[in-house]
Amino acid sequence: MLTQEALPPLAALLAAHAGAQAERHRAIWAFDARLAQVARTTSEPRIGQMRLAWWNEVIDDPTGIKGRGEPMVDALRASGAMAAPGLVAMIDGWEVLVVEPEIDAAALGDYAAGRGGGLFRALADTAEPPAWLDAAGAVWALWDLAGHVGAPALAKAALAAARDVLPQVGEVHWPRQWKPLRIAFTLARQDVLAGRGAPLGVPRSLALRLLRIALVGR
């Protein structure tokens, strides 16, 4: 059972729109938060890589034994999320922030494609998504990074990269079961166009925007 602290507030609100897939979504969002914690608390890149490699081993373990008893591992397995496509890509994306001393445009692209594209593929539960879904995930990841990174220059670069990716999404039809992803992307898109990164927590203004997007689509 995941604790409330394991799931970021925005992720909890988004997962609530996933219907029967809510627990699976919660586990995937919590996994992303765990990887973020690794990136945030790692001061020695090699140690960070080892911590991320452990997760790769858990995902690849056909016996389902490795990591048993660890709440995050148990939640992924119990919800069926351990088999979700995109989890390894998420690890690869976060690894960029762990190992790269300078995050340039290429590194930002790798981070966004891995973390964001992998996250949206995992949530959508599709190994062969349309290209625009990966792009939407990349926009979300760059928006989220821009709002949480401590370096203003990197935040600015992340927003610029997100604006460059936005045309790859365009006006698309989101399947009904991808509603939480549509909401997440639309929130990010609105802020990226306004030059804002993700806010800390869920201020009232963001909660109201989320509700409006959920109800009317924009």
Rank of each mutant, 00 (worst) to 15 (best):
M90W: 07
Q49I: 00
E95R: 10
G67L: 04
N56Q: 14
G117V: 12
I59V: 09
P71G: 12
M50R: 14
I103V: 15
G67P: 03
E95V: 03
R115N: 14
A78V: 04
P129A: 11
G69A: 08
L133F: 15
A107W: 11
E70S: 02
L87S: 00
R46N: 06
F120D: 10
A122V: 01
G118V: 10
A122Y: 06
T42K: 02
T126L: 09
A131C: 04
A138I: 00
V99M: 08
P45G: 12
T126G: 06
E128Y: 03
G48R: 13
K66T: 07
D60P: 07
P62R: 05
A138V: 04
V99Y: 11
W54Y: 15
P85R: 03
E70C: 09
I47Q: 08
R77A: 07
P101H: 02
A105N: 11
A136F: 13
A107R: 13
V98H: 00
D134I: 15
D134M: 05
G114C: 02
A81I: 05
A105M: 05
V99L: 06
D61E: 05
G109W: 11
M72A: 04
N56H: 12
W132P: 01
A107M: 02
D74Y: 12
G64R: 03
D110E: 14
A113L: 04
G64T: 09
P45N: 14
A89M: 06
A136P: 00
R121F: 03
L97E: 10
E128R: 12
E57N: 11
A113F: 07
G67K: 01
V96W: 07
V96D: 05
L52G: 14
G48F: 13
V73A: 01
Q49V: 12
P45A: 05
S79E: 07
L133N: 06
A84D: 11
S79G: 13
V98A: 05
V88D: 02
G117M: 12
R115C: 06
R115Q: 10
L119Q: 03
S43W: 15
E70D: 12
E100S: 01
T63M: 05
I47G: 03
R51G: 08
G93M: 08
I65H: 12
P129E: 09
G109T: 03
A78Y: 00
A138F: 02
W94R: 07
L123I: 14
L52F: 09
